[in-house]
Design a protein around this nucleic acid. Structure first.
Lengths: 246, 246
DNA sequence: GGGCGTAGTTTTGTAGGATAATTGTGCGGA
DNA sequence: TCCGCACAATTATCCTACAAAACTACGCCC
């Protein structure tokens, strides 16, 4: 951690979001099991020594983790790691630390499982309630997928498509799942080269979904989305020639 | 905000989690639209004046909200409210503030919608993967529902049942939904007196779910859970004589 | 000797003041 | 007109001192 001297001679550190780095560092230690649920974290002074930061910065980092449900702090006791079911695993940061802490394939499978549960239902809601402009947004995302010049552009448009579908469901309690879709598709892209390399299959599947939603047919929307996810699952299972990069 | 004097004569407030109260107060102001997404919050000194708290406490409160995705703070700019899709609406506190800020019936409908999407899929996963002890936990929760001496005990056991079902799905990314189930059932209990007053219907529906999961039949589990949710929906729709409590 | 109350100790919670870093804004000059 | 620089406002960090809370342990009283 770089330091420098002021004119007054006091040793200070640049004020560049120390607490954010602390929060990330401590968060990863919790996610990777160094401090399991129920265990007690070192006290604030100790963290300060370990990371060469002031107690104030440590406290703010801990408050951030507090807000994410990873910790509870009490006087005289210290900060205790909460049970996993209290964690906000759908939080952007928490999910990122999670990903860093676990096996890539397992992580991806968990994400995909949630998508399988969720997205057919989302498609049904979207079919029932999408507005005209939401339908249009969906169609333009599909068009972007069609004309994507590169695989990475294709993935980007793909993410956009699914996010807009989620938005079209018009239930804001579903919003946190956006992060799952983003991470799942990004992880797919990292994990298999094959994923983006078969637009001839993916594009018709997406088109079916849009058509069903345009027609406001809930059952067809569900089936189309299920078929789409079946395809993704097949890739993950390695049955369509997926090859892990690494 | 109560104050008192120390021997030194300085005016202080009891150190009883001021930052938590501040976080709740500011959180509610955001949720209820006083500070809409994209808007700028008053600066830290102003909050301090308004709530008669030190800047330290204000900062910790803001860091908590930061952790929940409601805010981002940057030097010179201040704290800006994030767009809604970044909010951790599944966070315990955020959901509570949410509930306080919106119409009870609408809130309940949103929750119930998510349950409809989710729980059939959860039942499928549980049927496929539940361990013997998880099945046993499910059965004992059902037994507790059967022998519940009062409506409120019944609801408690009901919540427990659904939480254990969620746990039996063995996918920790689903954990955040626990809060939705808890809130939905609690809100139902507040909103309709009828909900807990028909064990003769509810108990068999739950029993079917357990039987399907015991038999590891995924399709039956899905259907049983769907039937259970249909019943809840009917109550919400007022078709089974639900009467709002006022 | 045992139980209960109380003082002590440790740790987080709050306060307040000082300095550094960051970035929008406006002014001036090329 | 546009670019760059000084300025100002605000958060970021640090420090120190106390206050509050809760576990510990001791001692007093019965």
């Amino acid at each position: 951690m770089q330091q420098r001297r002021t004119t007054a001679g006091r040793t200070v550190r640049p004020a560049s979001r120390v607490h954010a780095r602390l929060a990330a560092a401590i968060g990863e230690l919790i996610l990777n099991g160094t401090y399991p649920p129920g265990s007690l974290l070192p006290n604030e002074a100790e963290w300060g020594r370990r990371f060469n930061a002031s107690r104030t910065a440590v406290r703010e980092a801990i408050k951030t983790l507090n807000g994410k449900g990873l910790l509870v702090s009490r006087p005289k006791i210290g900060s205790r790691v909460e049970p996993r079911e209290r964690w906000n695993v759908l939080d952007r940061d928490v999910l990122a630390w999670h990903r860093a802490a676990m096996d890539e394939a397992t992580f991806l499978r968990s994400l995909q499982e949630v998508r399988r549960i969720l997205e057919p239902g989302v498609a049904v809601l979207a079919a029932a309630r999408r507005s005209a402009s939401q339908l249009q947004a969906l169609e333009s995302a599909l068009a972007a997928m069609r004309s994507a010049p590169s695989p990475s552009e294709m993935v980007k448009a793909d993410v956009e498509f699914h996010l807009r579908l989620l938005a079209a469901a018009n239930n804001e309690l579903l919003a946190p799942f956006a992060i799952i879709i983003e991470q799942a598709l990004a992880a797919m892209f990292d994990y298999t080269t094959r994923h983006t390399a078969h637009p001839e299959v993916v594009l018709p599947l997406h088109t079916h979904v849009v058509k069903a939603i345009a027609a406001q047919s809930q059952e067809r929307a569900r089936q189309a989305m299920t078929a789409l996810l079946d395809d993704t699952d097949a890739i993950l299972a390695g049955q369509r020639g997926a090859r892990p990069r690494a």
